[in-house]
Design a protein around this nucleic acid. Structure first.
Lengths: 200, 200
DNA sequence: CCTATTATTTACTGTCGTGTCAGTAATCGT
DNA sequence: ACGATTACTGACACGACAGTAAATAATAGG
């Protein structure tokens, strides 16, 4: 009967928190937000549900925001790096697209979590703000690539559309319907050609 | 105590069915799929939950597929009409975009239901098939607008990207951040410019 | 008018997910 | 060594929702 005598694990709060964030990221990514219960996160993290509430008092929403923040930070870092090269706009666009697709191939589920969940309906405010911030960032990042002569709203529509285009083609890549080379090449050309039309 | 004597309403099956479809469309659109319970549909339709199961044995998923089908049918009809004009490709594109945006302004919630829900994760098969059909249709519709010289995968990526672009700018329009004229003009130009790049 | 049919409801069961409370075990300071 | 603090847990109340069985009222056919 030698009970393995429940040796509890007891970690430093920061460590536990990041551990939880990591696990939550996995589960949310796999199952999607709506389909994920705190119970599963707790189980996989070898942790009680109560502890989740202790570190993230607002429960699931707060946990999700934390995860979104993590993923977004990574993505933004890589993207910024891709834009920092000393080449012309067209080259930068290609670099951006390539980086984006590469990130998605490495984090396909996180991608869906970030961009393909139906935020905006009845979800808590924390999430809405996180999503707005996300859109904001993407826009700031892409705006400089467009011809700077165009008026505000046009620019906004164009950048937003560019993001949509990227996401749609990315989906195709993830579904295995188009290989990466073609995806990157086509999307890049499309974007270059599209942005070129704004001034005329 | 004069009970208004529960006069049941008893309709012909077809009528009830379409009534239910209508109500379901409203509720799904407002609340989103995940957040909608059958109870609410039943309540708003002045009908018992059991009846829903009677006419749609698979419950929520089946109900949703029915609604998606209705909305999609409408959208496709309008879109086809817009493409049937005897003008050149560029004009057709403008017409398509305009029609699309117009439809969305009239059915903003249905739009979100169709395109912005996270289908593809753990949802029942019926839904997945419905979504695939939807993508299929959109692709067939847009494909002919691209320069026909490009190879298959490129064409696929381009059409898919076009849809993404449309959806993204539509979102902007619905959010009131850009007015319709600008949205249509910018999206059209972008698409025209983008598709033109495919051959080179 | 009466019976067979069927459209419809009431009332219920089981499941699952959130959020909480009272308690238990590890660690730290002294 | 031994309290005091703090990380952590088990068990449960509570509500919402999917799904079902059996009864009931409306209609159609004779």
């Amino acid at each position: 009967m030698a009970q393995t005598a429940e040796t509890r694990v007891r970690m430093a709060p920061e460590a536990r928190k990041t551990l939880i964030r990591t696990v939550a990221r996995e589960v949310f990514a796999e199952r999607g937000y709506a389909a994920t219960g705190l119970a599963e996160i707790a189980e996989r993290g070898q942790v009680s549900k109560t502890l989740l509430y202790h570190y993230f008092p607002d429960g699931r929403p707060e946990l999700l925001v934390a995860v979104m923040d993590d993923v977004l930070t990574e993505l933004m870092a890589e993207t910024r790096a891709a834009l920092a090269v000393p080449f012309g706009v067209n080259r930068k666009i290609e670099g951006l697209v390539d980086t984006f697709m590469s990130f998605l191939e490495r984090n396909p589920d996180a991608f869906r979590l970030l961009f393909r969940e139906p935020w905006g309906s009845g979800e808590p405010r924390i999430i809405r703000r996180a999503v707005e911030a996300q859109v904001q960032l993407a826009t700031e990042l892409i705006s400089p690539l467009a011809s700077s002569g165009a008026p505000g709203p046009v620019l906004l529509a164009a950048t937003s559309g560019t993001v949509g285009l990227l996401l749609a083609t990315a989906e195709l890549l993830l579904a295995g319907q188009v290989d990466r080379e073609v995806t990157v090449a086509t999307a890049s050309r499309y974007i270059i050609g599209g942005l070129a039309q704004l001034g005329s």
